[in-house]
């Protein structure tokens, strides 16, 4: 039994996390600072900002559907159908159940 996983793996990772934390904090104070300085965000800029989360997150889902293998594709599509009505937790449960079922049945 090794306990290596308890300790930091390398300083590079800690450095990346610190920079990511600073970048995140900047987004949290950025809006408040901006609003204190400026009266109005241009509508097109606001439309672009609004699209950011869906645009970024879609790029993390689509390739998994296309390249992830048939079991992953089916699980994600089932979760999608569940997600039209229910929230994230049922989606995760449904997708997980489907992929486990497919794998334990030896289909993939």
């Amino acid at each position: 039994m090794s306990f290596d996983h308890l300790l930091p793996q390398d300083l590079r990772l800690i450095g990346v996390i610190i920079l990511a934390a600073i970048a995140t904090y900047l987004t949290r104070i950025g809006g408040a600072i901006m609003i204190a300085r400026m009266e109005k965000i241009p509508p097109r800029m606001e439309a672009a900002l609004n699209a950011v989360p869906a645009a970024v997150l879609s790029t993390l889902v689509a390739p998994a559907i296309v390249f992830g293998g048939m079991d992953v594709t089916i699980a994600i599509l089932v979760a999608f159908v569940v997600g039209l009505r229910l929230s994230a937790l049922p989606m995760l449960l449904a997708g997980w159940a489907v992929v486990m079922l497919l794998r334990s049945a030896g289909l993939f």
């Binding site: 879609s58 993390l60 889902v61 999608f80 039209l84």
Partner: peptide, 12 residues
């Protein structure tokens, strides 16, 4: 499969 499904939930 959890990660892509979680991100899809956020997208939805």
């Amino acid at each position: 499969v959890m990660l892509p499904i979680y991100f899809m939930a956020l997208v939805l």
